[in-house]
Write a protein that binds this DNA or RNA. Structure first.
Lengths: 345, 345
DNA sequence: CTGTTAGCGCATTCAC
DNA sequence: GTGAATGCGCTAACAG
C-alpha cells in the first residue's frame, strides 16, 4: 500500500520525450511556444513515467517571495486581538516558505475607511485577506484588487457578491441556528421570553446569526418568545445596559443570546440582578473572558470560530494559490465549534 | 509590521564569520570537527545577521525521503474506515515533501497481533503512527521502536506510559464529561435512568469516556440514574440487543449514551420500541450513519474526533520531527467537536 | 519554436 | 579542523 518511492525528474521526462528540459518545463507550466505535437509527446511521457513535479525544487529555483497583506479591524475586542495574534503566528508559519504577511488595521464600522485601505494596497502584494464589511464600496475595492490579479480571501466576515476567491470563516446563519438549538434544548420545559443582543445590525454576520437563531427558536421552540434585538456595539458597557433593560422588563426571562462581543457586560448585569443561574447565556467566541464565564457557569455555551485556524487557513490559501500547490478543502473548512465547560481546549 | 524580506544565506554567515560554508554548516547542524572559538564566531555571525536556515533548500539538498508506517485496526467500523481514507489523503498531502506513508492493518482487540505488527516494523521506517491499545506487550513494542530511533505517535487511542513522542487524539475523559453535560442539560427537568453502552471495557478510551460521563452525571445531575454499562462490541447487532434490553427494563428511560460504535443498532431498537423522540441518544463520531440519525432527530448530539485532522496531524508531526521544522501546537490539538443538527460540516 | 546554461541555498563528499 | 567543489530538481534567462 506504499506510494512510489523513486521519483521521476524533469530530466527523465525530457529524455523519454526526446526534448529538452526547457520544453518540458514549458508544457508543464502551460507557457506558450511549443508546437502541438511536441506538447502531446511531452504529456505522454509525463503520463507514462508518472512524473510529479517536485514543489520543493520548484520553490527553490523560482526564488521570489510572496507578500500578503491582512486587513484587520482596529479596536479592543478580544476576539479581534486574538485574531491579530493568530495572523502573526500564521506569518511565522509560512515564513519558512518565503511568504510574508503585513498587517494593517482599519475601523471595521467604517466602510469608507475599509474601502480606502483596500484601494491603497500596493502592487507588490500577491494576496490580501480582509475582515470585510458588506458594502458597495468595499465590494468594488475587492473586485478591483481581484481584477488587478491580487488574490483575495475574506476573513471571518464575507462579501458574498464580490469576486473574492475564498471566504475563510463560518456560516453565520448556521452558527445562529446552533445557538438557537442550544437555547431551546437547555430551556427544556421552561417557557418565556429570550433576549437577543447584537453588536450592530449593519454587520452582515450579526444579522445572519440573528436570523438563524430566530428561525430555529421560532419554528421549533414555541414556548420561547424572542424579544426585539438590542444593540450593544460589541462594547462591555453598552451591552451591560442592554442586558439590564432586558432583565428589568422581563422577570421571567429564560435566556439571552449574545450575537456579538461584550459578554462580560451581560455577566455584570446578570450578577447585579442575582440571576446568573436562572438565565441561560449563550454567546460567541472563546476568549479569556468567555472561558472564565463558562467555567463559572455564568455562560452556558460558547459558539466559537477558531481564530488560529482562520488565520492559518487564509495564509495557506493565499500561498497555495501563488505556488500552485493543491488545496486540502477539508483542512480549510472552518468549524462552528460548540464549547461547554467540559470540552474546552 | 512586516517580517524581514531579504533573507540571509549561509554564504553571508560564512563571510561574516570569516569561515567557509562547510564550517557554518557543521556548527549549524551540531556536527563535530570544529574548534570552540570557531563555533563561537560562527554563532555570533548567525545571531548578528539574524540568519534562519531555508528549509526549502535544505530539503532539496538533503535529498533523502522519509517513510512512515501507520498501523490501523482492521474491521468495518465506519469511523476506522474514514480514518483509513484520511490517512491516505494525508499521505498525498505530505508526498510533495518527499515523505511516504504505508498503511498496515491489524486486529485492534488483539494485543499480541498489534505488538507483533509493531515489532515487525522494518528499519527503513523513520516514523510510526499507531491506533494503540494499552497493554504491556504493546507498550514494550512501542518503547522498542522509540529506542531504535523511530518516532512514534499514538493515534486516536493512547498508551500514556509508553515512550511515544506524541499522542494525536482527544482527551476521552473530557469527551465523556461533555456527553454527560449534554445529557444532563438536554434532560432538563426530567428524571430517571440513563443507559450506557460501550464497545469494550478493555479499551482504555471507552473506559475513560464512561468514567467522564459518570463523573458529570453523578455529581451534577442527581435526577439521572446511570445504569450498569452494557457491552456492544462496536457491532450493530449486539448493540441493538443491548439497547433492546435497556429499553425493555426501563419504561421511563431518559437517555442512552453510546460510548462506542453501533449507533444504528440503538436507533433500530429505539424505532422498534417507538421511543426515538422520548429517549435522548448521544453518541460518538460523525459518519454517514450518525449524520443521518442526527438529521432525523434520532440522535441528539454527536461527539466527534475529526479523523482527517488526526491523520494530518500525525503525518505532520512525524514529518516535522524528521526535518527539524517547528511544530505548531495549536494546529495539532485535536478538538472534541460537538455536532448538533445545525452545525454539521 | 526549441535547446543550453547558470544558478536558487544548502548538504556532503573530498582534499588540504 | 577547515575549505573547495559538486549536485539536489527545477526555473529563467539566454542562444540558436
Amino acid at each position: 500500500m506504499g506510494i512510489d518511492g523513486l521519483r521521476m525528474t524533469l530530466v527523465d521526462v525530457a529524455r523519454e520525450a526526446g526534448v529538452s528540459l526547457a520544453t518540458v518545463d514549458r508544457v508543464l507550466n502551460g507557457r506558450p511556444g511549443v508546437r502541438g505535437p511536441t506538447v502531446t509527446r511531452v504529456k505522454a511521457a509525463i503520463e507514462k513515467l508518472g512524473y510529479r513535479p517536485d514543489p520543493i525544487a520548484s520553490r527553490l529555483a523560482h526564488g521570489g517571495s510572496f507578500r500578503f497583506c491582512f486587513i484587520l479591524p482596529t479596536g479592543t475586542n478580544t476576539f479581534m486581538t486574538n485574531l491579530g495574534d493568530a495572523v502573526t503566528e500564521a506569518a511565522s508559519l509560512i515564513a519558512g516558505q518565503r511568504a510574508f504577511i503585513d498587517i494593517r488595521q482599519t475601523d471595521v464600522f467604517d466602510p469608507d475607511a475599509l474601502a480606502t485601505a483596500l484601494e491603497g494596497i500596493e502592487s507588490h502584494y500577491h494576496g490580501v485577506s480582509v475582515v470585510a464589511l458588506d458594502h458597495p464600496r468595499v465590494r468594488a475595492a475587492i473586485d478591483d484588487l481581484v481584477g488587478r490579479g491580487v488574490a483575495v480571501a475574506t476573513l471571518v466576515s464575507d462579501v458574498p457578491t464580490s469576486r473574492r476567491q475564498w471566504y475563510v470563516g463560518i456560516d453565520h446563519t448556521a452558527a445562529g441556528r446552533t445557538a438557537g438549538t442550544l437555547m431551546g434544548r437547555f430551556a427544556g420545559a421552561r417557557s418565556g421570553p429570550v433576549g437577543v443582543i447584537a453588536g450592530s445590525l449593519s454587520l452582515r454576520d450579526h444579522v445572519e446569526r440573528q436570523f438563524g437563531f430566530g428561525q430555529v427558536v421560532g419554528d421549533e421552540y414555541p414556548a420561547l418568545r424572542i424579544l426585539p434585538t438590542r444593540v450593544g456595539r460589541d462594547d462591555r458597557e453598552r451591552t451591560r445596559v442592554a442586558a439590564q433593560a432586558i432583565l428589568a422588563e422581563h422577570p421571567d426571562l429564560v435566556g439571552i443570546y449574545n450575537i456579538g462581543a461584550g459578554n462580560q457586560g451581560i455577566a455584570d448585569a446578570l450578577e447585579e440582578a442575582g440571576r446568573t443561574r436562572e438565565v441561560i447565556l449563550i454567546g460567541h467566541d472563546l476568549t479569556v473572558h468567555t472561558r472564565r464565564l463558562l467555567l463559572l457557569g455564568v455562560m452556558d455555551a460558547i459558539i466559537n470560530q477558531d481564530p488560529g485556524h482562520q488565520a492559518r487557513s487564509a495564509a495557506r490559501l493565499l500561498l497555495a494559490h501563488c505556488t500552485g500547490e493543491p488545496i486540502v478543502a477539508a483542512q480549510e473548512r472552518i468549524r462552528i465549534d460548540i464549547f461547554l465547560r467540559d470540552n474546552l481546549p
